[in-house]
Design a protein around this nucleic acid. Structure first.
Lengths: 362, 362
DNA sequence: CTGTTAGCGCATTCAC
DNA sequence: GTGAATGCGCTAACAG
């Protein structure tokens, strides 16, 4: 139970003053090569861990951080991520951070491009990106890199970019799991319906593609021969869905289970309930308000959660720490998947709303 | 985005000095009734929230806290709770806390009595209790109350006591959920085997009883007529279990699913594997190392987690906050249940081991 | 390039 | 019973 090592201790050991050690830790130049080497070797040797709460009271700088992601309404997936970001800002309230937010239409690649373009104008200290379109995101990241602006991803990673870190679920395993779950509860030999949104430009979201791969691989690995049908669905014109579903089910009368690879599971769950279609097992993803409600009523059997709040929280936390200390952070941060049923959803929500928060947060 | 209110602000508003406000916040007497009233009303009015990280650097007092619970080996349930306690001590390392630990044999009520007796000798500032035997725990709490020592429970609450708070899963729902899960994956019409440990004095653990109730109620509510058989099992003489299981399965040949209401699920899971008994669904509770291993190999289908680490963490955190600020804490703290499968267990463990921890913890 | 000093919010100690 | 002074670990501004 030895006392934590302080800057003062490091300074004494290195034969310099505390001010010099501080300059080295924060890399604000103007130190001799010799001092730098000596101090840095001692820092490593004693594994110095700065006390961020102490730092924060004396820190003067204001950091400007941008969160750019798909737009969201209350209770939707991306709102949870934003809430997590806010929570981090509360925990580190002593540190002055301005967090701007810019959103784009996730079903329209052209809108996304425009928003990314305008996001490059101001000079942010760092950016948190919620990516949907791979190509556009890559381009955006390339420009950020040229401007020397660090960025992190939430929700999913994008290949061929160099983020400081990303905070994501493993979407492949998510799809793999959903396939296992639907099979474990549905009647053998029945067909499976899959819902997966299409976007303008005919590109599925990054995460949805990965889930689909996981789903298919589970089928292959277990030599499952159930027929898979794609259920037509429109995210942008919700009023057309009922007709689409009617057509689908009249053409396919052997469906025993439905898997929804995006966060709109409640749409089909509510449809099934309305049409009094029983004996249909449903597995969905994302704890949106609408999905939680459908789960609670028993219209969804299993709901997979991706801890979006925690993703946002960790992203902002790591960014703050990086900006202050230039600490090398772990790049790949894969969060666990939550499996929720109607029995556990209430406890889950309550806990996240109340106990989970630190008492000293707003 | 207004700045947080400081003690200095309160002092100015109340027309007293910061020292006086501090004395009132911590209740260390020697303040006039009038000052107390004025300051307290302002504290409420502005909803003053002290900054514990600032408090901690200047705090001089050392707190002595006892953790008394069933003994544990590495990777077992109670170790996780203890780990959570340690984690809280790391997060609040600036605060000087001595945490002692005393353990008792959870299968022997007489051993428990003795340990409780000797736990009353030293003068602790607070006690964290892991209860097994209801009657003995009540008696222990009664004596703690007489000595004016506050206590909290982890794992489960005990009726007719007055803890400062308790941190627990909802064991009733846990049993209810296990019943639902086993039914959703096992073949219709088969029998169910239940494992539930017996203890010296013939008293089941608090939590196990509650789980059993939940299990039974799910059956009743859904008018499920499957036969339930109790599987004989000894926690204290593990070498006798194979014979007990052999006898059980030769007498009961229609078992389709097994539910284990205590943390020893791996015992039967490994037995089934060894004996090459297929087509038997297994649902267990507690993420012990042995259970996780069995889950990963596919010998357990669903494993229910109770977040023991988080229980321990929250218990210690709340206790520290209470000791420092006498903040009224929420008494009932029910944590959500985790549902784990072989697909999700790895992500869960990794995350808990690494990312979950604050960077500034050891 | 570097040491010194002041001040962040808070608890404590010492005069009054 | 109370205000003022001191120090906790750290950063920032200044002087050299």
């Amino acid at each position: 139970m030895q006392k934590r090592i302080r800057i003062k201790d490091i300074a004494r050991m290195a034969g310099v003053s505390a001010g010099t050690v501080d300059r080295i830790i924060h890399g604000r130049g103007s130190v001799s090569k010799k001092s730098k080497e000596v101090v840095e070797s001692i820092l490593r040797e004693v594994n110095y861990r700065p006390n961020i709460h102490m730092s924060s009271i004396s820190l003067k700088k204001t950091y400007n951080i941008l969160f750019v992601a798909p737009g969201f309404a209350e209770g939707e997936y991306w709102e949870s991520i934003y809430k997590g970001i806010q929570r981090a800002l509360n925990v580190f309230e002593n540190i002055s951070v301005n967090c701007s937010i810019m959103t784009y239409n996730q079903y329209d690649v052209y809108a996304c491009r425009e928003v990314f373009e305008s996001a490059l104008e101001p000079d942010f200290d760092a950016v948190i990106i919620g990516p949907i379109f791979q190509h556009e995101t890559r381009e955006f990241c390339r420009k950020l890199k040229m401007k020397n602006i660090p960025y992190v991803f939430v929700d999913s990673n994008v290949e061929d970019t160099s983020p400081l870190a990303y905070f994501s679920a493993n979407h492949y395993i998510s799809g793999y799991l959903m396939c296992r779950l639907i099979h474990s509860i549905m009647q053998n030999g029945k067909d499976i319906g899959i819902m997966q949104a299409m976007r303008v430009g005919n590109e599925s979201a990054n995460s949805t593609i990965l889930r689909k791969n996981g789903f298919s691989d589970y089928q292959k690995e277990n030599r499952l021969k159930n027929k898979i049908h794609r259920i037509p669905f429109s995210a942008t014109e919700p009023e057309s869905n009922e007709q689409l579903f009617n057509d689908f089910f009249s053409e396919n009368d052997n469906i025993g289970g439905i898997v929804v690879l995006n966060s709109r599971g409640y749409v089909i769950a509510n449809y099934l309930h309305k049409k009094k279609i029983k004996d249909m097992k449903v597995v969905c993803v994302d704890l949106t308000d609408a999905n939680k409600k459908a789960l609670k009523k028993g219209h969804i059997d299993f709901l997979i959660g991706q801890k979006p709040e925690r993703q946002g929280y960790l992203a902002m936390k790591f960014l703050i720490e990086h900006l202050i200390y230039k600490i090398p952070v772990k790049v790949a941060n894969i969060l666990p998947l939550d499996i929720l049923t109607r029995e556990t959803i209430d406890l889950y929500s309550e806990f996240n709303d109340l106990v989970y928060l630190d008492q000293y947060e707003k």
